[in-house]
Design a protein around this nucleic acid. Structure first.
Lengths: 146, 146
DNA sequence: ATTCTATTTTAGAATTATTCTAAAGTATTG
DNA sequence: CAATACTTTAGAATAATTCTAAAATAGAAT
């Protein structure tokens, strides 16, 4: 295993991630990089703070739950994540920040993306005076079939 | 003010409400009637447990917050109310149980109905295998204009 | 490299919304 | 009116999340 003149796949990924964090105004600390890697290296994900904390622990990263909360919020403010509110008890964070909607099955705690293209919503009234539309979200609530 | 042979508007309303509660399998207790009156006598409403508890107290009804929670859930199970989840911190209950959607302005804690007729949603994928659609909810998130 | 400073992390306490528990109260039935 | 099942409630408990202030660290300056 060489250590000079080239980079491992992992360190290259980290380098890209570190860059991304810097561009978002966030220092690429060990904790943020670890969470960022879990969140952004494999396609779209929906996580809760608890869940991500557990996952990070399993992957060998040591960080506090408070840091997971801080980081999720910072990533959200930076536009790297989006918050999804479909359940009164826990908050989900979605790595898909593009235009899309959700399926949510409370009885399975399952949250799934619905691509935004293809879905059209018509006939919405315009925003009340003094307000503007920030986003239109569709939640399709599912239940397991009997 | 007569007291024989006829009923005051208030007692008639209560009588109707008591009937409604009975039909829903709920004893029309003092607390349930008080809350039911607040909820159902003036058109569509969106309340939180805290808010309704406060309002009940102001209206002279004495009941505990736990009872407000119990009652809101019982009314919901009975189909008299619907839960609306648009904010991670608190749960709203909506007296409008028909087909409709919502505007939500977090910065003003304002929740408003959008009538369901008029709004059309097309192109949603069908439910994943083994699941069925319970409801499709649209939330239009608003922010105050700068 | 070492030092400095602002940013970050963290343990643990605090907060908030909500639910639970078990004892006391009340509506309905007989 | 007495019996019984359903309700209410005070207060403790829980769960998710936020706060606090002290210790750690990244990046800049020396």
């Amino acid at each position: 295993m060489r250590s000079t003149g080239s980079k491992t796949a992992a360190s290259k990924a980290s380098a890209g991630l570190a860059q991304r964090l810097r561009e978002a105004g966030l220092r690429p600390t060990r904790q943020r990089v670890a969470l960022g890697r879990l969140l952004f290296t494999n396609g779209d994900r929906h996580v809760t703070a608890e869940g991500l904390h557990l996952e990070a622990a399993k992957s060998g990263a040591e960080l506090s739950l408070a840091t997971v909360y801080n980081t999720l919020h910072q990533f959200t403010s930076a536009g790297l994540l989006r918050q999804v509110i479909v359940d009164g008890e826990k908050t989900y964070f979605d790595t898909n920040i593009g235009d899309h909607h959700h399926f949510y099955a409370k009885d399975r705690e399952m949250l799934m993306d619905i691509p935004g293209d293809g879905v059209s919503i018509d006939g919405l009234p315009k925003a009340p005076a003094g307000m503007e539309i920030e986003r239109v979200e569709v939640v399709v609530r599912l239940k397991s079939r009997a």
